[in-house]
């Protein structure tokens, strides 16, 4: 386990413990209701999540990783932003792999707007996160609405970043 995830685990643990104390001091057996909630949700989530994890792993295995390398030659412009958005959505990884990849991409000459679009896309559209978490927990309607609301914002963030960078360096 990485240091970062250990730190997050501790933070979540402290918050959970604090809320548990608050709940235990309220009348009406609230902690047991909370544990029942957690158990119930876990039971409905685990089988769906297992299927999602397997599907995401197979997809990660099939994905042509050379695409990311080939894309590094692309010059700036809206084509680069759209391509970066597409690749960002398919990058099946956590931040520990993502950020080193982004550094490598920028060193290979990829522009800042494209890199920002790549990161935004990995955040908002990541296919693996939709499969493993969002679909099992929130249902298909939420996924459809959220993706429809976000899909145009990903390239927008790239364009905005380009303008801000131009303005900063003007």
């Amino acid at each position: 386990m990485t240091t970062a995830s250990l730190v997050s685990l501790v933070v979540i643990g402290v918050i959970t413990a604090a809320l548990f104390v608050v709940a235990a001091r309220r009348p009406g057996r609230m902690p047991s209701a909370a544990f029942r909630d957690a158990l119930e949700q876990g039971k409905s989530m685990v089988p769906r999540m297992l299927v999602g994890i397997l599907a995401a792993s197979f997809l990660a295995e099939i994905l042509p990783k050379e695409t990311i390398g080939a894309w590094a030659g692309v010059e700036s412009g809206w084509r680069g932003i759209l391509l970066a958005s597409l690749i960002g959505a398919l990058a099946p990884t956590g931040p520990m792999v993502l950020f080193p990849v982004m550094i490598a991409l920028m060193e290979a000459g990829v522009g800042l707007p494209q890199t920002v679009a790549f990161l935004t896309s990995w955040g908002m559209l990541a296919v693996h996160r939709v499969l493993v978490w969002e679909l099992p927990m929130m249902g298909i309607n939420f996924v459809i609405v959220r993706l429809a609301a976000s899909v145009a914002l990903v390239p927008l963030s790239g364009f905005l970043a380009g303008w801000i960078a131009d303005w900063l360096h003007a």
């Binding site: 386990m1 995830s5 997050s8 685990l9 979540i12 643990g13 918050i15 959970t16 809320l19 548990f20 608050v22 709940a23 309220r26 609230m30 902690p31 209701a33 909370a34 544990f35 029942r36 909630d37 957690a38 158990l39 949700q41 876990g42 297992l50 994890i53 397997l54 792993s57 990660a60 295995e61």
Partner: peptide
């Protein structure tokens, strides 16, 4: 890869499910 992922997220998931349950009742 799946097994590694599962091992890594399980302790965190249990904790956060309890947290979410507490938020729901509180």
């Amino acid at each position: 890869f799946s097994a590694d992922l599962l091992l890594e997220i399980t302790p965190m998931m249990v904790l956060s499910l309890v947290l979410a349950g507490l938020v729901q009742v509180l």
